[in-house]
């Protein structure tokens, strides 16, 4: 009699354990599905790529041999300590222009969908410009461009946080 009660109790425990395992497996599968969605936070970089190429082509106030230099030209002139025709330092003009362009193009605020940005220019692997504004979040759109001119190379990175 005692043996039968014991056996019945054991069966109940096994059944309970199976149900618990089943629920745990379903829970893990569900969590896995949720995680795969969370990893897909890096958004399309179409807009940032267009922005970066348009920004680099923007003409600045820095004049050289009768032509106005673009942001891209200034990136290569800045390390050579070039002074524009009006006497301004090319690095200062580059800094001001990039800062103003970023400010007018990306509205960083709590109300806006853009929470922040991170912009960097490296010339020959040396950081020349870095602008960070707002908050760094997990969802961002990123773009990069690299150019080479004679012996110099420039890498430009932009991340827009949402």
């Amino acid at each position: 009699m005692i043996k039968e009660i014991k056996k019945s109790g054991q069966e109940e425990i096994v059944g309970f354990a199976i149900i618990l395992i089943l629920i745990a497996v379903i829970f893990i599968v569900f969590l896995g599905l949720g995680k795969s969605d969370a990893q897909k936070q890096e958004l399309e970089d179409f807009e940032t790529t267009s922005f970066l190429s348009a920004m680099l082509e923007t003409t600045t106030t820095c004049e050289k041999n009768g032509d106005f230099l673009s942001v891209k030209d200034l990136i290569f002139e800045c390390p050579n300590y070039y002074f524009c025709l009006d006497g301004n330092n090319s690095c200062e003009v580059l800094n001001e222009t990039v800062e103003e362009i970023l400010e007018v193009s990306w509205d960083v605020s709590e109300e806006s969908s853009v929470k922040g940005y991170d912009f960097e220019i490296f010339v020959n692997d040396e950081e020349r410009i870095k602008f960070v504004q707002g908050n760094i979040t997990k969802a961002y759109k990123g773009a990069s461009q690299n150019y080479a001119k004679t012996v110099d190379s420039a890498d430009i990175y932009l991340k827009i946080y949402y």
Binding site: S50, S53, A54, E57, T58, G66, D67, V104
Partner: peptide, 23 residues
């Protein structure tokens, strides 16, 4: 909307120069 360069030509003293603005 998408970002583009908006370019035109302008006369600077005696030279025609390219001007590109962000648009």
């Amino acid at each position: 909307s998408n970002y583009v360069s908006v370019c035109h030509k302008e006369k600077n003293i005696n030279k025609i120069v390219n001007i590109c603005e962000l648009g």
